[in-house]
């Protein structure tokens, strides 16, 4: 009985997902050339690219699923697994690297067990590294949920993370 309810619940969530994906696809008027932008919008909506969304895109745009999948895996921008509540992006571009960007990554691993591409067990943070965010004067640079934190240090990192729960 309980399992049945669960599957109904899951079904409901999937349907709502599918409506949201459909709405995004509608905005592109069937244009296959805008696949990358479309996937970006899907990711912005769900915080990752769900498998079902790729199937839906493939069916509605009449593009082989393998092609949608190849685009979603070729480009760095896409995640195929859900991310944590807060996204930490540490820049490991040349300028930040020279100024000690790796130290921040080491510290996140030490303190939170967080490695690039990974998510903390409590789902609080996901860590990604990026090769240059174009704010090199402020290196080492870290972005949390779109907010830039420049000239980061191990000490500053603790204080900064505290405000994200």
């Amino acid at each position: 009985m309980a399992a049945e309810m669960d599957s109904e619940k899951v079904q409901g969530i999937l349907e709502r997902h599918s409506e949201r994906v459909n709405a995004i696809i509608d905005g592109y008027e069937g244009r296959k050339d805008l696949m990358i932008s479309l996937l970006q919008d899907v990711q912005a909506e769900f915080n990752y690219v769900p498998r079902d969304a790729m199937v839906q895109i493939s069916q509605r745009l009449d593009v082989p699923l393998s092609q949608v999948f190849s685009i979603a895996t070729f480009f760095k921008a896409f995640n195929l697994t859900p991310r944590g509540r807060h996204l930490i992006t540490v820049c490991d571009g040349t300028a930040c690297h020279v100024r000690g960007g790796l130290r921040l990554i080491d510290k996140l691993d030490r303190d939170l067990g967080l490695t690039p591409g990974g998510t903390t067990e409590d789902g609080r943070f996901t860590l990604e590294t990026v090769r240059c965010l174009g704010a090199c004067a402020l290196g080492p640079l870290m972005v949390i949920d779109g907010k830039y934190h420049g000239q980061m240090s191990s000490n500053k990192l603790d204080r900064t993370l505290r405000s994200y729960t």
Binding site: K32, D33, I36, A77, R131
Partner: peptide
């Protein structure tokens, strides 16, 4: 305007154009 997907190789002309067409770059 077309937003890229974050691939260094897409700075290369033919890869960039493939990406503009909605293909792998």
């Amino acid at each position: 305007i077309n937003r890229g997907g974050g691939a260094f190789v897409c700075g290369e002309s033919s890869a960039l154009m493939a990406s503009l067409e909605g293909q792998v770059g």
